[in-house]
Simulated assay, not measured.
Amino acid sequence: MVQDRFGIYLHIPFCRAKCRYCDFYSAPGTREVPQPFVDALLRELRNNHRRPDTLYFGGGTPALLSPTQVRSLIEAAAPLPGAEITLEANPDVVSQQSLAGFREAGVNRLSFGVQSASDPQLRTLGRTHTADGAALALAWARQAGFDDLCGDIMLALPNYTNAEFDATLDLLQTGGCTHISAYLLKIEPGTAFARHRPANLPDPDAAADFYLYAVKQLEAAGYRQYEISNFARPGHEGRHNLLYWNCRDYWGVGPSAHSCLGNVRRFWPDDTDAFVAGTLTEQEEGICDAEDFLLMQLRLTAGLDWDEYVHRGGTPLDARRKAFLRQCVGHGYAEFDGRTLRLTPAGMVVQNAILEELM
Rank of each mutant, 00 (worst) to 15 (best):
G235T: 04
D166R: 12
E356G: 14
V70P: 09
A346T: 07
N230T: 07
A105Y: 01
P202F: 06
S181K: 00
P189R: 05
L201V: 10
G286W: 10
Q283W: 10
L201M: 12
E291Y: 13
R31Y: 12
G252H: 07
R142F: 03
W306K: 01
Y226N: 00
S116L: 05
L243T: 00
W306D: 06
T315D: 12
L355R: 11
N48P: 00
L280F: 08
R142G: 07
Y25S: 05
L294S: 09
F102Y: 15
P81L: 09
N200Y: 12
A163H: 13
E104M: 06
H196V: 13
V70L: 01
F37Y: 15
D271C: 11
L122K: 04
P189E: 04
T54C: 14
G347L: 01
A192L: 14
E308K: 12
L295I: 15
G286C: 12
M1K: 08
E227H: 09
Q121I: 11
G332A: 09
P158W: 01
L300T: 10
A353T: 13
N162I: 11
Q115V: 03
V38Y: 02
M359V: 15
N47Q: 15
L298Q: 08
P120F: 04
R266V: 03
Y244C: 02
P269D: 06
T191Q: 09
H236N: 11
L171M: 09
Q96S: 15
T174A: 11
A63K: 08
G235M: 03
V70Q: 03
C328Y: 00
T130A: 05
L212E: 12
L304I: 12
S26A: 14
F14S: 00
F231N: 00
A277S: 13
D132P: 00
R320Y: 13
Q351H: 11
A156F: 03
D292L: 14
L298F: 10
S259F: 00
V215N: 07
Q97A: 15
Y250T: 02
G286E: 04
R320E: 15
L122I: 09
F146I: 03
